[in-house]
Amino acid sequence: MDDELRTKAVDAFIEATNTADPERRATLLSRALTDDIVFWGPLGRSVGRKAVEDFITEVIQRHPSGSCLMVRTTRVDAPDEWARYGWRYESAAGEPLLSGMDIVHITADGDIDEIVVFAGPLT
């Protein structure tokens, strides 16, 4: 599988988390995720692109700190169909609020069909 395909899928997902425009978000998610994606997030397991979109809208976009951004902090490391990347969630002023790493499974077509979110440092 092409590293560029993996990176494009991850970056489209991150861009979707950062856009306030619901139509743009839906378009980006349709480029990055399968319809039946399994999302293991901080609130538990959910299935489907709509569930991921709802998480972005209800949790990320409505953060108490106001307008925030998700930033990829590492390259997308993908030895095969599984990939990982580091990220940081930051305030509009650039202040780090949370960081972590996501593990994603990417299909041969370059779409993410599973995301496992690891937020915060391991202690």
Rank of each mutant, 00 (worst) to 15 (best):
Met1Thr: 01
Asp2Leu: 14
Glu4Asn: 12
Arg6Ser: 07
Thr7Tyr: 01
Ala9Glu: 00
Asp11His: 03
Phe13Trp: 10
Phe13Lys: 00
Asn18Ile: 04
Ala20His: 04
Glu23Pro: 00
Glu23Arg: 05
Arg25Tyr: 08
Ala26Gln: 05
Thr27Val: 11
Thr27Trp: 08
Leu29Cys: 05
Leu29Ala: 10
Leu33Ile: 06
Leu33Arg: 03
Leu33Met: 13
Asp35Leu: 12
Asp36Tyr: 03
Ile37Ser: 03
Val38Lys: 04
Arg45Lys: 13
Ser46Ile: 08
Ser46Glu: 15
Glu53Asp: 12
Ile56Arg: 00
Thr57Val: 15
Glu58Thr: 00
Val59Tyr: 04
Gln61Cys: 00
Arg62Phe: 03
His63Glu: 09
Gly66Met: 13
Cys68Arg: 01
Cys68Glu: 02
Met70Val: 13
Val71Trp: 08
Thr73Ile: 14
Thr74Gly: 02
Val76Ser: 07
Ala83Tyr: 01
Arg84Lys: 01
Tyr85Gln: 11
Trp87Thr: 08
Arg88Trp: 02
Tyr89Thr: 03
Tyr89Asn: 05
Glu90Tyr: 08
Glu90Leu: 07
Ala93Asn: 12
Gly94Trp: 07
Gly94Phe: 13
Glu95Met: 14
Glu95Ala: 15
Pro96Thr: 07
Val104Tyr: 02
Val104Gln: 02
His105Glu: 04
Thr107Pro: 00
Ala108Glu: 14
Asp109Trp: 02
Gly110Trp: 04
Glu114Met: 12
Val116Asp: 08
Val117Cys: 04
Val117Gly: 02
Val117His: 07
Val117Arg: 09
Val117Ile: 11
Ala119Val: 13
Pro121Val: 10
Leu122Asp: 14
